[in-house]
């Protein structure tokens, strides 16, 4: 399999890994958002809690969940490898650089954006995933079945304005990351076509606005509801 390593180890191969893991994470965002939006249903968290339980007990979803962690790690590790490589490619920086003339801010700062997102993910995991899994969680009963009341944990967290702000700001960061990352992934995969590329680019911008906005909506609405 030496050719596999050779390919993946090339600058193009590393970008391929970034693109594939990135696209998977984009897909994950959609699924995650679909589930989370149930927090906003006016049913005191019933749909959300049932959904959470179903996800947690489905073995396939659990595998995907583990993969998801793996891909986040891979995405982050490769970004570090690539950044180090790229830094080495220009050991002496320019004294004057007018990069704004030729590229967007977010395209040049994917590393910073990504780091912020990683920090957010850690906060997010600690706050919810860890709590759901290992924390002391109240239970709730629907139609005779007992469920973990994750909704209560979320609702409690979003009473805190600081927490809400962290979430909203992080979603803005995610938006910038996606605004470049979405179409960039297709470019790295070599998927470029006169007919489809303009559509992919527009879709990427749309995705980068809508998905983080909806994510951000959840803490805002829940915060407002709590008061």
């Amino acid at each position: 399999m030496s050719w596999v390593f050779k390919t993946l180890n090339s600058t193009l191969g590393k970008k391929l890994l970034m693109a594939l893991t990135g696209l998977f994470l984009i897909l994950f965002l959609v699924v995650h958002l679909a589930g989370n939006l149930q927090l906003l249903l006016p049913d005191e968290g019933r749909s959300f809690n049932i959904y959470a339980e179903t996800m947690a007990s489905n073995p396939l979803i659990r595998v995907v969940g583990i993969l998801n962690f793996g891909f986040i790690a891979l995405h982050a590790i490769y970004s570090i490898i690539l950044t180090r490589h790229n830094k080495k490619s220009r050991p002496v920086a320019y004294a004057v650089s007018k990069a704004s003339a030729n590229s967007t801010w977010s395209s040049r700062n994917m590393g910073i954006l990504g780091t912020l997102i990683l920090i957010f993910i850690l906060i997010h995991l600690r706050g919810f995933w860890y709590e759901f899994k290992f924390g002391e969680i109240p239970y709730v009963t629907y139609d005779g079945e007992t469920y973990k009341n994750g909704y209560a944990v979320v609702a409690a967290a979003f009473e805190n304005i600081a927490y809400v702000i962290i979430y909203v700001v992080s979603m803005a960061v995610l938006a910038f990351h996606l605004s470049h990352g979405f179409s960039s992934a297709f470019q790295s995969l070599g998927l470029n076509h006169k007919k489809y590329t303009p559509f992919i680019q527009k879709l990427g911008i749309g995705f980068a606005i809508v998905v983080p906005a909806l994510f951000a909506l959840i803490p805002i609405v829940m915060f407002l509801q709590s008061n």
Partner: peptide, 25 residues
């Protein structure tokens, strides 16, 4: 020892011969 591409598009935007990014794809 050249760097990897992060698709910023700066190359094409500065290319005096306007070589397109689609080449990289």
């Amino acid at each position: 020892g050249f760097g990897a591409c992060t698709n910023t598009g700066a190359c094409s935007a500065e290319c005096p011969k306007e070589i397109k990014l689609s080449n990289i794809a």
